[in-house]
């Protein structure tokens, strides 16, 4: 009972912080799982599960209007179940994803309900009632926090024993398979990140970063620094060429050679 209250509260508070402080990333698994772990008395597992889940959920970010699977609920409940049932990281991985997908649809409902608030918001705006607008804004947030609290509370209260026996009954081969799948899942996240960024013309940068690690095993930070230097070189290069072209031909077209590196 107490555990269920705590988990529900953590989910609600984290979401409140996330949206009151301008999206500071406190709902990412690396943070959520750590906090759940600390509160449930197993900080170490929390951190390790958080690291694994962060990889899998890396690409699930809210960009534009699309609603991604709910990482907060997925990571929070996945970690809580893994710790409460004493099963390791694999169990958290197996549970986090279906939970995140379920919670995604709850989020959609909140977004729809809050659309109905907008008529009221327009009325408040017409009265120049700024206090009312701020109250409404926070109320909309609290509605979602309450949703998270209920989800966390109910899931832990009724779910942990059910989830425990479910996890214990998963055959060994399936667990191995899930481990392999766990290694593969980050590919989906990275593909999602690449989707808006990568084009035929700039795939070389992706390959360069990949090859620097695959063949040389350079640290990510080192590769980032190479990237920054390369970006400077290319951006300045482009400036020189564009200006030349613009001066010479009065057009903004860039030559074919440059196309290969166009972003």
């Amino acid at each position: 009972m107490q555990t269920a209250l705590l988990v529900g509260l953590i989910l609600a508070v984290l979401w409140f912080i996330e949206k009151m402080l301008g999206t500071p990333m406190v709902i990412r698994p690396i943070v959520v799982s750590t906090i759940i772990g600390a509160v449930l008395g197993d900080l170490q597992t929390g951190i390790l599960v958080g690291a694994s889940l962060e990889l899998i959920f890396m690409g699930f970010i809210q960009v534009g209007g699309a609603v991604p699977p709910d990482v907060l609920v997925g990571a929070g409940l996945g970690t809580a179940f893994a710790i409460l049932s004493g099963s390791g990281t694999e169990a958290a991985l197996a549970l986090a994803l279906p939970i995140a997908l379920l919670a995604q649809s709850l989020k959609v409902i909140v977004f729809i309900v809050r659309s109905w608030f907008m008529d009221f918001a327009m009325r408040l705006a017409r009265e120049a009632n700024i206090k009312g607008l701020i109250t409404l804004n926070v109320a909309g947030l609290l509605l979602q926090c309450a949703m998270y609290f209920v989800v966390g509370f109910v899931a832990i209260l009724f779910g942990s024993s059910a989830v425990e026996s479910f996890v214990n009954n998963i055959p060994k081969t399936i667990m191995n398979g899930l481990e392999v799948a766990g290694g593969l899942l980050p590919a989906v996240g990275f593909a999602l990140l690449l989707l808006p960024m990568m084009k035929k013309t700039n795939i070389l940068y992706f390959l360069l970063g990949f090859a620097l690690f695959a063949y040389m095993e350079l640290p990510i930070l080192g590769i980032t620094l190479f990237g920054v230097v390369l970006a400077f070189i290319i951006v300045y290069e482009m400036k020189g060429k564009e200006m030349d072209v613009a001066v010479a031909e009065g057009s903004t077209n860039v030559d074919d050679e440059e196309d290969l590196f166009d972003v």
């Binding site: 940068y205 970063g209 690690f213 590769i223």
Partner: peptide, 10 residues
């Protein structure tokens, strides 16, 4: 984009 793609690649 260049930095991002390289980091994602790595």
């Amino acid at each position: 984009t260049i930095v991002g793609l390289m980091v994602i690649g790595a």
